[in-house]
């Protein structure tokens, strides 16, 4: 609403004009005509505008992760796509290009700020050139901008959204990968399982880990389980509660659980926030945990150092 009013006002400023008749098919046609004119203008000045844009990008310290040549190459591609969108009005090709571009530049650490920055810069560079070209005829300039601005904004939007979507896709993919990092339940000795947990424990994962462990206990007829949480970055009361539940559930199935790998920071945090783990058997590191487990199971590990000599003596 406000937009159309503004447009009306703008088109009225130049005074008598065939375009003053608002919002008709004539208007749409004239927009198309103007866009065509615009496109040919951008085609003609391709080299110069492109260079101007690349220079402004470097000046603004954008895309610092990329070399001059790369910037220029991408700038050319974006420029051509830009013109193509203005000409055809279809953003599909640009969308595909933006996705492809994002895929290439995200791993190199290019940020959203930079991508939006360069697209907006191009918008400014082109607008400036339009100002320069039509400065004599203010009315015409207004009409050209009316045609140009929505299209330019749509392009900026498309590229920005494309970039953000690509990022989100990568983030989702990584989350999935983290979630699927299976938590293996491994048997190290008859009746002794170890369960190394790496990464963040959330309620969903805690549930999955517990279920896997319980199944493992039944399948391997385990008596002792060593849960190693060296790879868990932080333990709060929620995580501690999950651990306690896992330990209790294992105990119901007749298995003793030893928790290892509580770092001193984590231990201090747990004491500070008042989590009671006294019911849990905890041992400093995985080695100690396995040794304790072996003791519980009645294993005695001895060195075989002298064995070859003894056999030789016999």
């Amino acid at each position: 609403m406000a937009d159309s009013k503004k447009r009306d006002k703008r088109t009225r400023i130049p005074g008598p004009s065939s375009l003053a008749s608002p919002m008709g098919t004539a208007m749409l046609e004239s927009t198309a005509v103007l866009l065509r004119e615009l496109v040919s203008h951008l085609r003609e000045n391709r080299t110069q505008l492109r260079e101007e844009w690349a220079r402004r990008i470097t000046e603004s310290q954008l895309l610092v992760a990329m070399t001059q040549e790369e910037i220029f190459k991408e700038a050319t591609a974006v420029y051509d796509n830009y013109v193509a969108v203005l000409e055809t009005g279809s953003v599909e090709a640009l969308e595909a290009y933006a996705r492809d571009l994002s895929e290439r530049i995200i791993p190199r650490g290019v940020e959203t700020r930079e991508v939006l920055g360069i697209v907006l810069l191009l918008r400014d560079v082109l607008a400036r050139s339009l100002f320069k070209k039509y400065q004599a005829d203010f009315g015409l300039l207004n009409r050209v901008l009316d045609a140009y601005e929505p299209a330019a904004n749509r392009i900026a939007n498309t590229v920005g959204v494309g970039f953000v979507q690509e990022r989100e896709r990568i983030i989702r993919q990584q989350q999935e990968a983290i979630r699927e990092l299976s938590t293996p339940v491994l048997q190290v000795r008859e009746r002794l399982l170890i369960l190394p947990i790496i990464g963040v424990i959330d309620p969903q994962r805690a549930r999955q880990v517990t279920e896997q462990l319980l199944r493992g206990i039944r399948a391997n007829r385990a008596k002792v389980v060593v849960i190693d949480i060296t790879g868990v970055p932080s333990v709060d009361s929620t995580v501690a509660n999950h651990l306690v539940q896992t330990v209790d559930a294992s105990r119901l199935m007749g298995a003793t659980v030893i928790v290892t790998g509580l770092s001193s920071e984590i231990a201090q945090t747990l004491v500070t926030i008042g989590v009671d783990l006294t019911k849990m058997k905890t041992i400093g590191d995985l080695q100690g945990g396995i040794e304790e487990a072996e003791r519980l199971l009645g294993y005695r590990v001895t060195m075989m150092m002298q064995a070859p000599e003894q056999t030789a003596a016999k």
């Binding site: 279920e211 199944r215 206990i217 008596k223 539940q245 209790d248 199935m253």
Partner: peptide
């Protein structure tokens, strides 16, 4: 396993009672 998991979730504790597989 399912019963054990449900029990701890519901807070049903067997206390000091011994359990075995």
């Amino acid at each position: 396993p399912e019963v054990a998991f449900a029990m701890v979730q519901l807070g049903l504790a067997l206390g000091d009672v011994e359990t075995a597989l």
